[in-house]
Design a protein around this nucleic acid. Structure first.
Lengths: 255, 255
DNA sequence: TCCATCAGCTTGTACCAACAAGCTGAGCAG
DNA sequence: CTGCTCAGCTTGTTGGTACAAGCTGATGGA
């Protein structure tokens, strides 16, 4: 019957104990050597089992400290709020959302000019390797790295809206600034996928093994062509993206 | 300088060789003992490095076969297509999308009655533990497990639309059937997040370590209350969800 | 009191060994 | 030629050891 290898049994038992609250979020698991005694297994076997839980994102380990049970407070992200003159643009939306959630937003920012990758060129409908302007944000919530956001603008747009290529924030928001230049965003196309982080992403977001990233690619359109492409990466387990579509009058009613 | 532990160096070298095509998708890496010689490291250290690549989803291993470099053909999923009488409902959308992609759809199906979990109860605006009808699909693409879809209906809806609780497909689609009962879905609320699969999900979707799942929760509303809640899980790395919002006339034009 | 040091805990890295279990192709029996 | 077995490859599992490196609280000197 019991064909499961020992390290899986260890993981299964601990997983169940985490689920039922024996080990609460934020608390620490017994040490590897304690577990080694409890399960009558070598430290290697215990580590093997614990690494399963780490790769499931249930616990994280740190040298000298032990294994901590992770909590799962998700952050809601309203993605279908239309970005136009009436509503704030994406960057402001981040500040608004985070502040409304009672947390503290903070971001670093940089601008660079670089040739379009294949993905970006396709979405912006320009030739690959054409110059594009990249405006890059690294965002934090309560000083914890939360997301990176890279927005690419085609060079033709920068020609008519030169402030895009200047370092430094655009206070009124890029959407408003572009509208003032006669470029209005009338629609956008969103693509969402998830995968494990590259080492770079893991570093920027300070996430360990076992936490996937979500990739959110938004291509914005004027009435006649694409005007920007924004790629946002963030922790998949702590964020939830929301879309409201159609008539949702019934949603806000209290039963 | 070189403070990186050996097993990370191994992973970094192999990752770069996978990226630059030295090891193409579908091909196999050298065996652990070969790599052990090449890197002058013990087999354990090599395994440690390879497990990093596995957890990044770049390669997968199987006993007796070795390590295979994985490919990344993504499947597009149009999520904002409005589900109403004019357009087919979700289940049919799956058949349509898969067939259009030149692949073969196939699904198993079951119906059961069970008390609402907290998440479901909240979304359907019913009391927790109230009876709900679950219609569950396990979907395949070219005989590869692709997604699971669980749709929950509140019991009051089943009372007026009894066929929901009957096993077996509803040929005309549940949306059409419900509309015929006077229940029309006029809007929906989507929530998307990602995390590592539970052992159950890993089993159903036949995914190994290093592949996250995306969770897509859609709550459908009539004009006055929620009428269904659908939770879809699928591989995050092979699927991309799309939303079209606003005026996208410029998207389909060929430059 | 304050702060520097260190013992003693934790996990991280690296090696070795042995056997189990899955897959494949060579080669043999029919 | 067909089909079975098995040697020899692969990864999987489990045990062991040793030392490095990070964290914390106790200890003790200024």
């Amino acid at each position: 019957m019991n064909k499961q290898p020992k390290y899986r049994q260890v993981a299964d038992v601990l997983r169940r104990e985490i689920d039922n609250g024996t080990y609460a979020p934020g608390s620490r698991l017994p040490s590897e050597s304690d577990l080694s005694q409890r399960f009558d297994a070598s430290r290697n076997t215990i580590r093997n089992g614990l690494s399963l839980l780490v790769s499931e994102g249930l616990v994280s380990s740190s040298q000298g400290l032990g294994y901590e049970v992770k909590s799962h407070e998700v952050f809601e992200l309203n993605a279908s709020r239309f970005e136009n003159l009436t509503f704030p643009q994406n960057g402001d939306a981040y500040n608004t959302d985070v502040t409304n959630a009672g947390r503290r937003p903070h971001q670093t920012f940089r601008v660079e000019m670089l040739p379009a990758s294949r993905e970006i060129a396709e979405r912006l409908k320009v030739e690959p390797s054409t110059k594009t302007v990249l405006r890059f944000c690294h965002r934090y919530v309560d000083d914890v790295p939360w997301s990176t956001q890279a927005t690419y603008y085609p060079s033709w747009l920068v020609d008519v809206s030169p402030r895009l290529a200047e370092p430094g924030d655009i206070d009124e928001g890029t959407t408003r600034y572009l509208a003032a230049q006669g470029i209005e965003q009338v629609g956008y196309f969103d693509e969402i996928s998830a995968r494990m982080p590259t080492p770079d992403e893991a570093r920027l977001l300070e996430i360990g093994a076992g936490v996937p990233v979500m990739l959110w690619t938004r291509t914005g359109y004027s009435t006649d062509r694409p005007i920007r492409c924004t790629i946002t990466t963030f922790r998949g387990d702590l964020n939830r993206m929301n879309y409201e579509i159609g008539d949702l009058a019934a949603r806000s009613e209290n039963t």
